[in-house]
Simulated scan of single mutants.
Amino acid sequence: MPRIVMLNGAFVDAADAKISIMDRGFLFADGIYEVSAVLNGRTIDNAPHLARLDRSLKEIDIPNPYSTEEWIGFQNELIARNGLTEGTVYIEVTRGVAEREFTYADDLAPTVVMFTQPKSIVASKLAETGAKVVTVPDLRWARRDIKSVALLPQVLAKQAAARAGAQEAWMVDEDGFVTEGASSSAFIVTHDGKLVTRPFTRTVLPGVTRLAITALIAETGLVLEERAFTVTEAQAAQEAFFTSASTFVAPVASLNGTPIGPGKPGPVATKLREIYIQKALAA
């Protein structure tokens, strides 16, 4: 089956999709992106993803080229055309094509690219073994609440993790506190059973899966503290895990080589993952 992508409203074979070298996304990383999970051929938690897409566009002054209903139609069409049952749908919107100048005209037409990626999310090995995580300095720009395509710090963080035999990197600010993962939100479980994650500010991305998990935390009677935590506190925690659209809930087995708790998935992360998947499949 040929891979079909969406480019500026048209569905084309991936091999035929062409974007100008003068596109500001290529020249300046002047754009944003969004990723929604797909289970059983349907998007999961899609409404908040599209709301975050709209917010990110507004924050960098790019007009949203489509309505929510149009975005959903494109997603569903891509899922159907590519026969996707489990994986992700990716959206990228750049400011558009213009001569290379730092300033931009207000009437540029945004460039829109969408594609699907198959991935096994439910049957994840990390859910069975727990992920190895390493820490790296957080070198990103100050507006981390915008889902920018300027991902070089995350690329380098992920590569450093891979070279260390780890599956994720947690970024650490100058004060020694964990901000978030390179592509995830970070949680710990203290020995008195409280779940801790950093509050939403401009220092972190407002994770959609994190929002869904915090709602589950409230439903299950667990206690959530939104505050910063250090690497040392995380290493001494009872459990740790991270959340994202492409992993749901991933338990952490070790941080910088130090086992978290017993060094395997703990009951809190396992329970939250099971409930989240059950709800997603039933939706």
Rank of each mutant, 00 (worst) to 15 (best):
P199D: 01
L222A: 14
S185K: 13
H191G: 07
Q159F: 02
L151R: 11
T43M: 15
G221E: 04
I44F: 15
G130A: 14
V112M: 01
K119R: 14
S67C: 09
K58Q: 15
P63D: 13
L7K: 05
F102G: 01
P265Q: 07
L27Y: 00
G193M: 11
F115N: 07
N82W: 00
G181T: 01
R210G: 03
I62F: 12
L78F: 08
M171C: 09
F102S: 09
V252N: 14
K158L: 14
G257H: 09
K271F: 10
P251N: 13
L195R: 03
F102E: 15
I275A: 06
A142H: 06
L195T: 10
V155D: 02
R144S: 03
V172K: 02
T201A: 05
E274N: 13
T197A: 10
V12H: 03
V97Y: 14
V223D: 11
D23N: 06
L151K: 06
R55A: 12
A10F: 00
G73T: 04
E99W: 01
V189I: 05
L151C: 13
T135H: 02
Q167H: 12
T258N: 11
S183N: 15
G41L: 01
M6S: 07
V196C: 03
D175F: 14
D13Y: 03
A98S: 15
R24E: 08
S36G: 05
M1A: 13
A51V: 11
G257I: 03
A236R: 10
F74Q: 13
T68K: 06
L139S: 11
K279V: 06
V133Y: 04
A218L: 04
V5M: 05
F28V: 07
R144A: 08
F200T: 11
T116W: 03
E168Q: 10
D138F: 00
P262N: 12
S67I: 11
T201F: 09
P63Y: 04
F200Q: 12
P65T: 00
P259W: 11
A237W: 05
G87T: 15
E174L: 13
P199T: 08
L139D: 08
Y90G: 08
V189G: 10
A164L: 12
Y66E: 05
L39P: 07
P265I: 03
I91S: 05
F200S: 12
E86M: 13
T232V: 10
A218S: 08
W170Q: 09
V122M: 08
I217G: 00
K58T: 07
T103S: 14
Y104N: 08
V204F: 04
N8L: 11
